[in-house]
Design a protein around this nucleic acid. Sequence first.
DNA 1: TGGCGATGTATCGAGCTGATACATCGGTTC
DNA 2: GAACCGATGTATCAGCTCGATACATCGCCA
Lengths: 221, 221
Amino acid sequence: MRTEVTSRVSRRSGVLEFAVLGLLREAPMHGYELRKRLNTSLGVFRAFSYGSLYPCLKALVQQGWLAEESGRAPDDPRATSLTNRRAKIVYRLTAEGKERFEELLAQTGPDAWEDEHFGVRFAFFGQTSRDVRMRVLEGRRSRLEERLAKMRASMARTREKLDAYTLELQRHGMESVEREVRWLNELIESEREGQDQREQRGPGSARERARPDDPSDDRTI
Amino acid sequence: MRTEVTSRVSRRSGVLEFAVLGLLREAPMHGYELRKRLNTSLGVFRAFSYGSLYPCLKALVQQGWLAEESGRAPDDPRATSLTNRRAKIVYRLTAEGKERFEELLAQTGPDAWEDEHFGVRFAFFGQTSRDVRMRVLEGRRSRLEERLAKMRASMARTREKLDAYTLELQRHGMESVEREVRWLNELIESEREGQDQREQRGPGSARERARPDDPSDDRTI
DNA sequence: TGGCGATGTATCGAGCTGATACATCGGTTC
DNA sequence: GAACCGATGTATCAGCTCGATACATCGCCA
């Protein structure tokens, strides 16, 4: 299988590439801001370091998917001052880059739903067709169910031999996975419902919207 | 701060070192089996590769914490046969190694409850005093609460600007953390209860033991 | 004026992973 | 019985990633 392998910038993972292209699709940015976005908007799950980001940006430029621009407008008088304005490199998505991102967005194989990729893929679901969304969600679900099966088998095999804490750890791990499966079920259900009568409601409609009764939802610290 | 830094085998993380010492405390083993244990008993969360394990074992031997032994008993006639029996290296914990592990077990600082370490630390809770367990559990809990605060603040700041899927992703991420906090609360409560009348019940007593009504608990696949 | 934290680009050592190589063992299949 | 194959077992490597750090400027407040 594995029909959708094309050359990648960083061969392994390629998740950074995807995220960068996706973020730049919305607006040009420089490295520092990209990293901030990466670690907040998408982040929580993954954190990327400069040591990964800058080389990645370079590679993407070389591929022709990004273009560099000076941060200062050319008519800015300060641009030629004695201090030799620090270069603030703004990256912009090229037409080829947009195409590339589109191509990556359309992928629905393991590269879309394995652990390292799924979170970022999900964050860009808004730019995908429901068809692709469904395939990715279902792919991930079956992946997790497979994992659950392995965990259950392993636990049944070793239950007696393990100490109470190890067992508790495994139980908790399994419940985490089970919880994600439930989440996926809700999302899939929600996608199915929204078949025709969607009014930009997004994926949250199947849930009762967290804590509708708690006024201090945000800003609690 | 950081008073408990001592020299480590692999400086970064050191989690492999800890796990290896802990597993070998129970019984001598060779690399292959160690790795299997690492990725099942403790695993699920973390997975270690040979590329990490073998160098680590070497370093631990050099430190004098492990001793190598030939897998074949010296009186095994096959040991000198023409095929030159493949070396099956069994590792055994030395007295110094046992001491070292004890030392690591007693640590209750960030190195015990940060993401990379906590899982493995927890798996060896059975060999620790309740005092240490409490400190580690509470340390982790406060770490997670700190993270929650950051996430909430970040969400409050960016709520309007984010697309529905990104928002849903963040919501789910936050609930995951909240869930782990609840788990920690149960564990801490359970440790407190067991103050005197513990009868080897382990940490699960605060929970109702998963699915007492489901006979197909294991072996469902 | 001077300090300081946020912004900004960039690199490096060290560590880790996935892939792979190599070899033996035990069991099944034709 | 021989050919095969998956599990056992040790070991290495290229490539990728991270945390730390260096360096410099900006905006702001005292």
